[in-house]
């Protein structure tokens, strides 16, 4: 889905200033902040949408300037999109994304992780949900060991969860030819 973006010049009346954790200030149009439930609630509580109220800069201690830049880019792109409505995603998995979104999220995993945390903090549901789907698409089709590598998970399965009995090897896989492979009770941690 794409929307035309009419250009509007921000005026002091219709924007607020947010300050990132590294002290950089960003001027945000109030229209953009509607996409962030955290900011929208803050603006509503402090009545920053009124022209006669003095607007103090809003400190965002959990978000760096790089992340804020990235988030503003997202908010700008989705400025004229209809309000996000959560579909029943539990029962349908779709890994098709807009080209713009694919390019926007074509970033290393560590940056993606930080961006997801920022989206969660600012409560931007469309961005949050999109990153979650992107992450799911990166896990899909991988084996358990590959998932462990991608997600940096160290296994803790040594004994059966319920019985406490040490895990057995599948006897069908412990025949000749397996000797070169380490057959520890549980796959070794990465």
């Amino acid at each position: 889905m794409s929307c035309e973006e009419p250009t509007t010049s921000p005026t002091p009346e219709n924007n607020i200033t947010v300050v990132s954790s590294d002290g950089k200030e960003f001027l945000l149009d109030l229209k953009l902040t509607e996409q962030s439930e955290t900011l929208a609630r803050l603006i509503s509580n402090f009545e920053y949408d009124r022209t006669d109220v003095k607007k103090d800069p809003v400190p965002l201690g959990n978000i760096t300037s790089a992340q804020m830049q990235k988030i503003i880019e997202w908010l700008q792109h989705h400025r004229y999109y209809p309000k996000w409505e959560q579909n029943d995603i539990h029962y349908s998995t779709s890994f098709t994304f807009e080209t713009w979104v694919e390019e926007y999220l074509n970033i290393p995993n560590n940056e993606m992780f930080e961006l997801l945390n920022a989206a969660n903090y600012l409560n931007i549901p469309r961005l949050f949900s999109t990153i979650c789907r992107i992450m799911a698409s990166r896990i899909t089709g991988k084996s358990a060991e590959q998932i462990r590598t991608v997600l940096n998970i160290k296994t803790d399965v040594k004994n059966d969860v319920y019985t406490g009995i040490p895990i057995q090897e599948d006897s069908s896989s412990s025949e000749d030819g397996m000797s070169e492979i380490s057959l520890s009770p549980s796959p070794p941690p990465i």
Partner: peptide, 24 residues
């Protein structure tokens, strides 16, 4: 390269998992 999923808040982990299919 890695994405430490388990360090995310539970809501985010849940959202990622809900997007996975049964084998994953």
């Amino acid at each position: 390269m890695t994405f430490p999923l388990l360090k995310l808040p539970f809501l985010a982990i849940k959202n990622v998992l809900q997007n996975l299919d049964a084998p994953d």
